[in-house]
Design a protein around this nucleic acid. Structure first.
Length: 333
DNA sequence: AAGCCGGGGGC
DNA sequence: GCCCCAGGCTT
């Protein structure tokens, strides 16, 4: 075992928080703790863990209880499907299977939970990789762009031969939960600080959680009236600002009919938000109403793009003269 | 691959 | 009050 691995285990033995499930041997109780800890802070999970096991002390007891009652005990813990799955699991099997592969097939057990139970309850040499472990390893080796899959493989390869798999997994997770924190890691208290390659810029390494920028197809409807453009106050995204009607692209027919217009496609606008890429079809039509000068309203950048695209095209075939770009001074519409 | 599922804690 | 956190299932 390498020095840093020894150091981590030594740190864990000294500093592990005394949690109710620490040192637990009963696979069922380990399972309950791990399912409760999915997306749930330790502090919040503890009272549920106690109540749950008090009421359902064994897998058999859980399986024989009505689902309603299981959910009542779970009430407040959130993610109630976890309780449904746990209950279904208890009805499916008489005893927990002892291998990672079999555990992973049970309801509610994905790669993490199956590995946690297999390693802690049955000593299988399988890495339990949760968000804590991914963050710790990404920082330790300064792996800025590492995929979850890569970190999973790394974690598996780092598990020392001599360590108890369950203890090793818990040591990594405990370090992530109490020292190698997402926002403000306590590097001064970290047993691995001397060999951590990421500690100079730890904020760069929760990065695996970077969500993919999703693309969204929207349609904007530019209605040109006698005095300007039909505007509405925006809700949700860009709330409080003004703009032309903006909605999912597939709603165009319904929206157009509701407004009594027959728009034609004028063009397309792309716009990037923090975690969205918007692809906006710009549709336009002439309109019975008056409308107003859009440049006198606070507009999101997206709406400026939409209007710059639409207005010249509409004006070209219309009778009303229109600004082709956002004016700098006061502009009579 | 992306959306959904609940809560708590940090700022 | 808003943002962040995150495993497993579903579509």
């Amino acid at each position: 075992m390498k020095a840093w691995q020894e150091a981590l285990l030594a740190w864990y033995r000294k500093h592990a928080r005394p949690l109710p499930w620490r040192g637990e041997k009963d696979p069922y109780r380990i399972l309950v703790s791990e399912v409760l800890l999915q997306q749930t802070q330790v502090r919040q999970a503890i009272p549920y863990y106690r109540r749950f096991l008090q009421r359902f002390p064994t897998l058999k007891a859980l399986g024989e209880a009505p689902l309603e009652e299981v959910l009542r005990v779970w009430q407040g813990a959130g993610y109630y499907r976890r309780a449904v799955h746990l209950h279904r699991l208890a009805q499916q099997v008489e005893a927990l299977p002892q291998s990672f592969a079999q555990l992973k097939g049970l309801p509610g057990l994905g790669p993490y939970t199956a590995a946690a139970v297999a390693s802690m309850a049955f000593g299988e040499r399988v890495a339990a990789v949760d968000g804590n472990v991914r963050r710790v390893l990404a920082r330790l080796f300064a792996l800025e762009g590492a995929s979850p899959k890569a970190l999973q493989g790394l974690a598996q390869s780092l598990m020392p031969e001599e360590a108890h798999p369950g203890e090793w997994n818990q040591a990594l997770m405990e370090l992530g939960a109490t020292v190698c924190l997402p926002r403000k890691p306590l590097c001064g208290a970290c047993p691995l600080a001397s060999r951590c390659r990421g500690k100079e810029a730890p904020e760069r390494y929760p990065l695996p959680q970077r969500r993919k920028v999703r693309e969204e197809r929207l349609a904007a409807l530019v209605l040109l009236g006698r005095k300007g453009v039909y505007l509405e106050r925006l809700e949700g995204r860009f709330q409080g600002l003004y703009g032309v009607p903006l909605f999912p692209a597939e709603e165009l027919p319904v929206r157009a009919e509701a407004l009594g217009v027959a728009p034609r496609l004028l063009g397309e606008v792309r716009h990037a938000l923090t975690h969205r890429r918007l692809l906006v079809e710009v549709h336009g039509a002439f309109w019975e109403g008056e409308g107003e000068d859009p440049w006198k309203r606070p507009l999101p950048k997206l709406m400026e793009k939409v209007l710059r695209q639409a207005l010249p095209l509409l004006a070209h075939e219309g009778v009303v003269p229109l600004p082709h770009a956002k004016p700098h001074g006061v502009e009579p519409f």
